[in-house]
Design a protein around this nucleic acid. Structure first.
Lengths: 132, 132
DNA sequence: GATTTTTTTGAAAAAGTTTTCAAAAACCCC
DNA sequence: GGGGTTTTTGAAAACTTTTTCAAAAAAATC
């Protein structure tokens, strides 16, 4: 139905990235895949993640500590990024659809999507700080 | 007043990045600076941009086509990124401060900042498409 | 203003990501 | 299922960014 998904390795990459809610990085996916395909190239992982992103099966959420992080929940929602441990969390709701129309009027553009990210200290990291 | 700003080159980098509203990339700043200091290293530009970011004189707005883009308007506002030409535009208002408190309740985190980016086709790129 | 300490720099290495290109795998048609 | 076409892959190069480290520049001390 959803167009192409040919090779075994491509299917495995998609399976792995869907297997977690931790918003994994390419390196994390690579390390998981290597248990199944020890000869896979890191370039193949990057290439397929980019492909999934282009086809809408995947979304790039944020770059945390230099690493791009992905999300297979493609319905629009916001994210929280912990600036201490790098954890990425999903947020309920937070759709700025009405703002999209406002932005279109403001600058004459055609808005297709938007991204909302909150930064701070996650609950776990706050606990650790408190016990110092 | 605002702490350190020692070397000539550092001052020049800050002057250049402040001289435009185009949300420049490190490479763009480097190319400008080289007209004044032909022997400057690209690493010095990256290093100082990172320093300005840390000290709050500068903000990292988005990564467009693999390049980080900067803004010296540090008061909170949203941005629009054209997915065709890569232009980055400032948006009026759009502060989600009340949402910050909601997010804190939702996940128990301490939110310090947030980022809002709209993606689509800018006015210029829409015109060009229409004339195809 | 010379000496010592601290900061900043250039060059090169390293890290994350993308691209190139020839070989391998998957697909298509008969 | 064999032969030709298209897609996908691994390896290596290239690109953006960060880090390392010794040398140069700036600041502080005398």
């Amino acid at each position: 139905m959803s167009a192409q998904r040919f090779s075994k390795k491509r299917e495995a990459i998609y399976r792995v990235v869907c297997s977690t809610t931790s918003h994994p990085s390419a390196k994390w996916v690579y390390d998981q895949i290597r248990q199944e395909y020890p000869d896979i190239s890191l370039a193949t992982v990057y290439r397929n993640l980019a492909l999934f992103k282009e086809s809408g099966q995947l979304v790039s959420v944020a770059v945390v500590d230099g690493e791009e992080r992905f999300d297979t929940t493609v319905s629009p929602h916001g994210h929280f990024v912990c600036t201490l441990c790098g954890e990425v969390l999903d947020l309920d709701v937070l759709r700025l659809d009405s703002f999209e129309r406002e932005v279109e009027r403001q600058i004459g553009a055609e808005v297709e999507s938007h991204s909302v990210i909150f930064y701070g200290r996650c609950a776990d990291c706050r606990c650790m700080e408190a016990s110092d």
